[in-house]
Design a protein around this nucleic acid. Sequence first.
DNA 1: CTGAAAGCGCTTACAG
DNA 2: CTGAAAGCGCTTACAG
Lengths: 345, 345
Amino acid sequence: MAPPKKPPPPRPTAKKATIRELAVASGASISTVSLVMNGSWERYRITPATAERVRAAARTLGYAPNQNARALRLQRSSLAGMIVPHHRNRFFAGLAESFESHARARGLVPIVVSTQRDPATEREVAATLVMQGVELLVVSGVRDPSDINRLCREKGVRSVNVDLPGPDAFSVVTDNRAGAETLTRHLLRDFTGDGPVLFLGGFDSEYATDLRVEGFLAALDAVGRPRAEARILRCGYHPAAAHAVLDDMLARNDFPRALLVNSITAFEGFATLWRNHGDRIGAPRIACFDWDPFAACLPLPTVMLRQDVEALVGACFDWFGGTSDRTGEIEIVPAQMVLDRIAAP
Amino acid sequence: MAPPKKPPPPRPTAKKATIRELAVASGASISTVSLVMNGSWERYRITPATAERVRAAARTLGYAPNQNARALRLQRSSLAGMIVPHHRNRFFAGLAESFESHARARGLVPIVVSTQRDPATEREVAATLVMQGVELLVVSGVRDPSDINRLCREKGVRSVNVDLPGPDAFSVVTDNRAGAETLTRHLLRDFTGDGPVLFLGGFDSEYATDLRVEGFLAALDAVGRPRAEARILRCGYHPAAAHAVLDDMLARNDFPRALLVNSITAFEGFATLWRNHGDRIGAPRIACFDWDPFAACLPLPTVMLRQDVEALVGACFDWFGGTSDRTGEIEIVPAQMVLDRIAAP
DNA sequence: CTGAAAGCGCTTACAG
DNA sequence: CTGAAAGCGCTTACAG
């Protein structure tokens, strides 16, 4: 918990102007300066001339209020935090950028931190953000949000989960079941191929994966294919793991003609295998529960699902702006489909 | 500059423990508590028993020091900021993650903010980060870093540029010239095709692009192809712009058999065109000054350059940890090549 | 309309 | 070994 001891950084030559210097420079009192800088000077009937004098002095001094002092005094930091596992795919990159723009629109400074899906890092980062006094913490891509949600609640920080729901906070998630079902329907539209239809990736007893499998199976039912045709291989999300599973099927001449890949990282494993053994793999139909512009350019009949990051983050801020607690509630947001530019009707 | 007026957020029920409450709970004085929590209690010869009593109380209270108060008192925030244009490609995503881990290793809280390549946003974000009191600002992917570097200098904040150098701070960049030359040599190894060799993307009079064009031309010289064969089309970085240029060449039956694409975003324009007109485009050799795992999986003879984000960020922190100013100096970091898994020898 | 004053939570020389 | 005290820069009711 104690920060590592470090030598003080080399003294910077320049210094920040304080409100006191600005008061001296503008000939106004400290209170007047504060009032002017905060825009509430009209309420206090300060002369426009005085206000302008203060603002001019602020410009020439390059005055910017010390946010630490302000936060300490106001007990309000103007900081909004977000936890993501990483930035390496479009989903989380999009979540982060959407979060930043929403936060700024509300006058909050966005702080996005990645935690590499490591629970220890997740907890530490959450604790750090709470110490920094964030007013809101959006949690995505962690193993289990409950620890973090509870930590926040104890410290009076509002937290909300995205992507993975939890019982200890309000949560916003993509419609995993319907998304997977629609995706699978597209995958199997007019598909007359033989053999198993593969669902690849994710973990056992994992909220999103379970729902996606449900949707996958429902789509099989809907198009009149027996569930016995379904092969569900929950190999996790790592590219190498997906690669290994598929490589194995290829070696056994058992490569599926249609597959739904349960994340862009698992898709990466497929793409690598296909790049090296395209001749033996041919051109299976492929669907992915995630979207990436390059993945969409592989010359295969592809359909991808794109989560609506804007709507997901929007729902978080709507909740933040509202007054109801909604702990344990889950708001479900529909996804968008990205259909193949060649194969789609 | 004044924050938009907003209603105060719903009052949280829980509250953070303060040092005063911890003092009462542990039966020690405020000073003692502070000393213990900061790890400097041994220097003050506080009894281990007392220290442990304080720590135990801290655990049960869930005490975490208010970083705003600490920062205000110490005039040191423990915050490190980074500006990136966005997180949507591997280069910036990698820079951000590398930055986060280096910052944490030094006991700093990383704050990465994206600015969408908008100069107004860039300035605003930089000003905000300075107000928050960051001890270091790493600037990447902006149009012109000088404004930001100067702002930082005025406020006594140390700033360093990555990717794009500037005269007003220390800068760390990839070896653009050598990278482009090596990339082009790979592109043209044993290449006997006819027609122009294309350099696509970037802007006129842009630091990185100019150097990359130099390297590109040098490689042509080296492999004994006349410079007249070079076609240099600086269409910017937008996928749509690259797409338009290439579409045009395709319409005129003038599509190059070998091309170096000057960024992954421009490559996206190529990939989209190729996806839709692969039959007419065939399989040109392609090189890209950037790397993406999916782009590398297109079934084309491809060579990609991967900037060494770890080394780039490492150099920034080495500078930060050091004492010399180095304003205007440029440190050049070699890039890595990602060779095609099929076509490379 | 303006100024003096208290206090946000913390750190650290200093006096005991 | 511990406590009282000053002060970081700011905001805001309050007295003038």
